[in-house]
Design a protein around this nucleic acid. Structure first.
Lengths: 234, 234
DNA sequence: CGCCACATTGAAGGCAGTCAAAGGTGGTGG
DNA sequence: CCACCACCTTTGACTGCCTTCAATGTGGCG
């Protein structure tokens, strides 16, 4: 069983548990259970009872909402090392959104009860979790701002600038980046649909602000992008 | 000075500090400072350094974002007894939104440093704060859902149903309620503008679902409202 | 090669925002 | 008590961004 090799590794590397000694880490390890998911598997559905939270070890997981007609609003994409659904665990009895594996994924599940006793022993973990939830909150405030106060072109520009900061590579002729998801998913993340995203990218291309080749995007005029991101009509 | 009479009262009644003894409460009291604001006064502006959080004692405070053109998106309305800006304090160095007194207001300010030492002594406070921030998170997820996945009529219906639950009064001929804010503010809360809200309410009136008299609204057909709230075209 | 998911493009229509003006309301001071 | 003023609300006409619907293009994979 790979579990017994890997599981403690993930716990050890998690930001929540840095500074704990070996014995304590083993204590943490005992309250977790490893869960594996295949691409497109559901991790949990909106409305399901939330009796714990997750640490993503491998793969990517998307958190999203569906409208009654089936339109998807992507709330967040979780990357390895990050925890999610902590707030749902603390706040209410059920998950307020759904989670699905975007690729084959491994997760550690922390049951609520086990974790609460852990917290009593190690209050510092709470403080880290507070910080993390606060980040989520900030993220959602920005999402609200985007959806309510900006048009699609601004959101696209803002997103591109964000990717540039995280993983943009300076090449001759511009900054290159690769989209982390399909354009359909990106559209959902930006609160629109793929057709509109496609047209918006085309608009940016026509103005020689970007070049698009599949998932690869080359930024030709970052300055223009920044103007669009803050809301200037484009 | 009224301060010395009232300040400890507010601390005593705050959900964060229930269960603390008299001496501990005085300790809490010492790290707070009372701030008073007049209607329309700014409590803080987006981007200002966040070096603490607030407990609202009296009045109402709105948390909002402004677009570059000046359109307002109301994020939340704070009522007495509630705390706000905790997440901003934990997460980053500056407030991600602005806060303004909707009426003359009294607030207790908790400085970050003082509060952190308090937390070390009373970890249970952290747990309560975690619960509260989690509520905020859930609130914003719903806001994102509304803005992205629902049209204005659904948001209005959802809002009315929410007010019904909290303070609706069953009268002959329907449930009566009173809007907690001006229709302009409500429009901002719902991610739209007063003109559109006005038209939407008119639409509901025309269909004999509600009756409107200023801030007083009588619900004639709650059932219809529920259908609209979940997204049925209306 | 054919399938399937994803992506692009065009045409048409709708929801909601903008602009403008009139009507209503509450508070203040004479 | 009334007049006035500021602010909020309503209504109409118009505009436009975005979605919807539909068709075609593209790339990966069995």
């Amino acid at each position: 069983m790979q579990d017994f090799v890997e599981k403690p590794q993930f716990v050890r590397n998690c930001y929540l548990f840095t500074g704990l000694n070996e014995q304590e880490l083993q204590g943490v390890d005992r309250i977790t259970s490893l869960r594996t998911f295949q691409k497109h598997d559901s991790v949990f559905q909106e409305g399901e009872k939330a009796d714990g939270f997750f640490l993503l070890c491998q793969g990517r997981v998307k958190i999203y909402k569906l409208s009654i007609e089936g339109k998807e609003q992507l709330l967040h994409i979780v990357y390895p090392g990050e925890t999610f659904a902590e707030a749902a665990m603390f706040e209410g009895s059920s998950y307020p959104a759904s989670a699905q594996a975007m690729e084959d994924a491994r997760l550690l599940f922390f049951s609520k009860n086990g974790f609460l006793t852990l917290l009593k022993r190690h209050p510092v973990i709470m403080l880290r979790m507070l910080g993390n939830i606060s980040k989520y909150l900030h993220h959602f405030i920005r999402l609200v701002e985007d959806l309510s106060l900006k048009e699609v072109s601004s959101r696209v520009a803002e997103y591109l600038l964000d990717v540039i900061d995280r993983e943009g590579v300076l090449m001759e002729g511009g900054i290159e980046l690769e989209l982390e998801m399909t354009k359909s998913d990106l559209a959902a993340r930006l609160g629109t649909i793929s057709e509109t995203l496609s047209r918006t990218l085309k608009g940016l291309r026509d103005r020689a602000i970007i070049e698009v080749d599949g998932k690869r995007i080359r930024i030709l005029d970052k300055n223009a992008l920044e103007k669009i991101a803050v809301g200037r009509k484009f």
